[in-house]
Amino acid sequence: MVSPMITEKVISNAPYAASAVTVIAGFTVKDWGVIIGVVLTFITVIVNWVYKHRQDQRESALFNQKINHHQKHKNN
């Protein structure tokens, strides 16, 4: 048997779900195109930032290795 507490939560949240479905159903193909474009642009920015950050870390590590190698040979 379903507890009364769960039933109350479902009933109290039903208008919000219905409103969300109504809004989503009202989107045109043009609206969906804009939404998808914005989301994909945001994802692209994040992915590019992550890869650039990793590239910067690799280049910094290589630079530090070269500096350390140069300093060791300079001291000898």
Rank of each mutant, 00 (worst) to 15 (best):
M1F: 15
Y16A: 15
Q65R: 10
K52Y: 02
I36L: 04
N64L: 07
I43T: 13
E8C: 03
Q71H: 12
D31M: 05
V39Y: 09
R54A: 02
V38R: 08
A18E: 12
T41Q: 07
I35T: 14
K74D: 15
K66R: 09
K9E: 00
H73N: 13
A25T: 02
P15W: 12
V23L: 12
V50R: 01
S3M: 14
V50I: 05
K52R: 09
I46V: 07
S19T: 13
G33R: 03
K30D: 11
N75C: 10
I36K: 08
I36A: 10
T28A: 05
P4G: 04
S60C: 06
P15D: 10
I36Q: 05
V34H: 14
V21L: 06
H69I: 06
K66G: 09
K66D: 07
D31G: 03
K66C: 06
H70F: 11
H73R: 09
W32G: 09
S3N: 14
I46P: 00
V29E: 01
Q71T: 04
K30Y: 11
D56T: 03
W32H: 08
A18T: 10
T28N: 10
N64H: 07
W49S: 04
V38P: 01
K72T: 04
A18V: 13
T41W: 03
V45A: 02
N68Y: 09
H53S: 01
G37F: 01
I6C: 14
H53Y: 04
H70T: 07
F27P: 03
N68T: 13
H70M: 10
V29K: 06
H70E: 08
V45E: 02
K52M: 05
K30G: 14
N13Y: 05
I6M: 13
P4N: 13
H73E: 03
F63N: 04
F63Y: 06
S19N: 15
T22R: 06
A17H: 14
T7R: 15
G37A: 03
D31P: 01
E8P: 00
M1S: 15
F63W: 09
R58M: 04
S3P: 02
T28K: 04
I67T: 01
V39K: 02
Q55K: 11
H53T: 02
I67Q: 01
M1W: 15
Y51N: 01
I46C: 01
L62P: 00
R58P: 00
A61W: 07
S12Q: 03
Q65F: 07
Y16N: 09
F42L: 02
V23W: 14
N64F: 02
Y51P: 00
A18Y: 12
Q55R: 10
I43E: 14
I36T: 11
W32L: 11
